[in-house]
Design a protein around this nucleic acid. Structure first.
Lengths: 210, 210
DNA sequence: GTTTTTGCACTGACCAGTCAGTACAAATTC
DNA sequence: GAATTTGTACTGACTGGTCAGTGCAAAAAC
């Protein structure tokens, strides 16, 4: 039913157990939060004894940190891939942004629990994994920033654009719209959501009529 | 130091205590999450005995629920006010949306901890206060949806717009951009952030050059 | 003199992390 | 090829600590 947010290779038995634990943890933590989720629950959902959790991970927070690192890694790879694919096709930077929006939606569609959890934790301070999260966030946002910057440099995007702020806004637009889609209007198709966001990106909401 | 997210009137002594508890709770919960925040911490930060917390609120979650309800109430009022003010001035619907973006930013600037906490809890399922939160979210988003709908009806906005999805995207854009601003680029001014978002709304990022 | 707050001791449920022990397959010895 | 050792993965009862919530007498505020 849910997100296989884990390392792919590693054919050992151990790796399979880790997988199951990741998958159990991601949904439970997304639903209840980190502190409200008990290690016993995670073990039970994974169909494993509690001791096994500690055999595989040093602590509850380490399990969570590795989960975060891997999940964001997947997203970043997927965004970068979308941008490169567009470039290969000879598309412009706006097309690349549009492709990245779609890649983001596909990711969230596949791993909604992970996304929920990421958003919930991202701006928290004073947490053990805060630094991990900041590094990993920067990697993801940087992919969007790069495309914006190239667009400005190549003259395709206006020079008045504030790159970091615009990147954050675009990421936020996709994240929140997608989470709302999954939670409150799950009957809508990915294409619908993509079309709505695309329209906003291309200025066909508040823009001067062409 | 932080957000006076509480009922304004109520001159009684009791109300003042409630205020202090709201303020203490909102920052602590934003930083650590609901479960990781203890009632003792809240009491200590508020400079109040633990018994007082229970004299004023039935339980920890009731305290939190009332916090949520009131905070979103403030935001909703502020958004509605911005839209009406624009209408009074004779501005168009795009102007109203722009004014609402600014109102949202002002709110987040004033109550960053509350906003952080709201975003972290919004898409969680299976929580005691989930229903409270959904009602209250709908009120806030509805304000944006109303303006979009009026804009479409009056011909100022394109009919192809998907109102609920676009509203969610706009709200998300503001929330995430603002939280990023507060957390990662606090040196930027509100006007900078507003300008960046305004540009996106008005299609001067990916839009066809006029 | 009523309402609100304080301070503090207490309870009982809950939970992260530990540890002695089991299962079992593959390697090693005889 | 049977007997023994080794390494790896896993188990679940147990422990020490934490925390929401209670109870209450005395003080303070109004």
């Amino acid at each position: 039913m849910e997100s296989s947010i884990a390392t792919s290779h590693g054919s050992s038995r151990r790796e399979a157990t880790r997988q199951k634990l990741y998958e159990a943890a991601v949904t439970l933590i997304a639903e209840q939060g980190f502190s409200a989720t008990t290690v016993d629950e995670i073990a039970e959902r994974a169909g494993v004894a509690k001791g096994t959790v500690y055999y595989n991970f040093a602590s509850k927070s380490v399990l969570f940190e590795e989960l975060l690192r891997h999940g964001v890694g997947l997203l970043t790879a997927s965004l970068r891939e979308a941008a490169e694919e567009t470039a290969r096709r000879g598309g412009g930077k706006v097309d690349a942004l549009d492709a990245m929006i779609r890649a983001g939606l596909v990711f969230i569609d596949r791993y909604p629990a992970f996304t929920q959890l990421y958003v919930a934790e991202l701006w928290r301070t004073n947490r053990a994994w805060q630094s991990t999260l900041m590094v990993v966030r920067q990697e993801a946002v940087a992919v969007v920033e790069d495309v914006l910057r190239e667009g400005v440099r190549g003259g395709e995007l206006s020079e008045e654009i504030d790159v970091p702020l615009t990147a954050a806004a675009l990421v936020g637009m996709v994240l929140v719209a997608a989470l709302d889609w999954k939670s409150f209007q799950p009957e809508r198709s990915l294409d619908d959501v993509h079309a709505a966001l695309s329209r906003l990106l291309q200025g066909r909401v508040g823009g001067h009529r062409p």
